[in-house]
Computed example of a mutant assay.
Amino acid sequence: MNQAKHEQEVVTLQASRLSFSHGVRTVLTEIEFSLRQGEIVALLGANGAGKSTLFRLFLGLIRPKGGVVCLQGRNIATWSARDIARRIAYVPQGHTAVFPYTVREVAMLGRIAETRLILPPNAQDRAVVDQILGRMGLLHLADQPYTEISGGERQLTLIARALAQGARLLILDEPTSSLDFGNQVRLLKHLRGLAAEGHGILFSTHLPEQAARTATRIAVLHQGRIMVDGAPNEVMTSKLIGTIYNLRLVSRETGDEWEPVDDAL
């Protein structure tokens, strides 16, 4: 597929009746889900709900036990890893570089999906990466070691690396988990900007208020199933939050607050 056609595609990802298990333990059951460009979807779920497994299925890294993940209406298992990477990019929670790569060098790794590993970056690759670093507010740090910048700047660098792949769908695993409040706000603003430019964003979070403030849709993964998927004002209720995290809302003189149903961690 030529580059011009690749850029013109409206990239879609869809899961239908998706199931996965580890041995006899069922992790995911009958998952129905879709993501397309321009959306921001927040995935909520307690620890162990299966969010990471679901992401790996969406990226084609593991095969489902039942159902199918489709990219552009075609079973993702029939796509090459390179062609998947040109359409879907993954941003992990955090990343520690073994070597003191510069910010530009880390972002340039995303170009492998376009140029292949054996080819050195050319002038076009450098121009693409510098344009992306500029968009993310990182160009002034381009020659700084990735290991010496702040956590928020490292997270933005990983997003820049994902964008350098040319991917139109981004999957982010708890992108704000290690950031202070200010950097959380800045990063979520960048995600909203990327969606406005036509990227599809799927991110996991443990902060319901963050999901409600940022996402156009919220999907809730509970006991291996998508419990609910809809607009934030329709999805986010006290009853739902209590169910997901095993909490109850109690009224006190100082106001309502959450408390655990049990003290098990």
Rank of each mutant, 00 (worst) to 15 (best):
S150C: 08
Y245K: 00
A123F: 03
Q8I: 11
L158T: 08
L44G: 15
G94D: 05
R192N: 07
V128D: 15
L187E: 07
Q165S: 12
R192H: 06
F99N: 01
E9D: 15
A264T: 10
I159F: 10
G152D: 09
N183Q: 15
H6D: 14
Y146R: 07
F33C: 08
A162Y: 09
L247K: 00
Q184T: 07
G200R: 04
P92C: 02
T205E: 04
Q124G: 09
P145C: 11
V129D: 05
M136H: 08
T115R: 11
M108Y: 03
L247D: 02
H22K: 13
H190D: 08
L163M: 15
I31M: 14
G242T: 00
S16G: 13
G110Y: 00
F203M: 01
L28P: 10
E32M: 11
N233H: 05
L13H: 10
D83Q: 05
V103Y: 02
Q37V: 10
G137V: 11
T29E: 15
L265A: 08
V103G: 02
R86N: 00
A160R: 11
L265I: 13
G73C: 06
A195Y: 06
L71R: 05
T157L: 09
I149P: 14
E7D: 15
L207R: 03
L172Y: 10
R56W: 02
V128P: 08
R135Y: 13
M136E: 12
T102F: 01
S150M: 07
R126Q: 14
G134Y: 09
R82L: 05
G193Q: 12
T214C: 04
A195I: 04
E174C: 13
R56M: 12
E30A: 12
T254F: 05
A142Q: 13
A212N: 04
T216F: 01
E197V: 03
I171F: 11
V69S: 08
A15L: 14
Q210A: 04
V91P: 05
V106G: 01
D83K: 02
Q155V: 06
V261F: 09
Y146V: 14
D143Y: 09
A46C: 09
V185L: 15
S21H: 11
E7W: 12
T78I: 05
H6P: 06
Q155R: 06
Y90N: 02
D256Q: 15
L207N: 06
A15K: 12
Q14A: 14
A167T: 10
I88K: 01
F55E: 06
D130N: 15
E114C: 06
M108W: 01
L163Q: 15
I244E: 00
S177A: 15
T214R: 03
I76Y: 06
A49P: 07
R192M: 09
G45S: 12
T96K: 10
I132A: 07
G38A: 07
V128N: 11
P208T: 02
R25M: 12
V10Q: 13
T216P: 01
E259M: 08
L194H: 07
A142L: 12
A142F: 10
D130V: 07
L13Q: 10
R154N: 08
S204D: 05
G94W: 04
I118G: 02
R126V: 12
T243F: 03
L57C: 04
R56K: 14
A231T: 01
E209I: 06
L35P: 07
L249W: 00
N2S: 14
A4N: 14
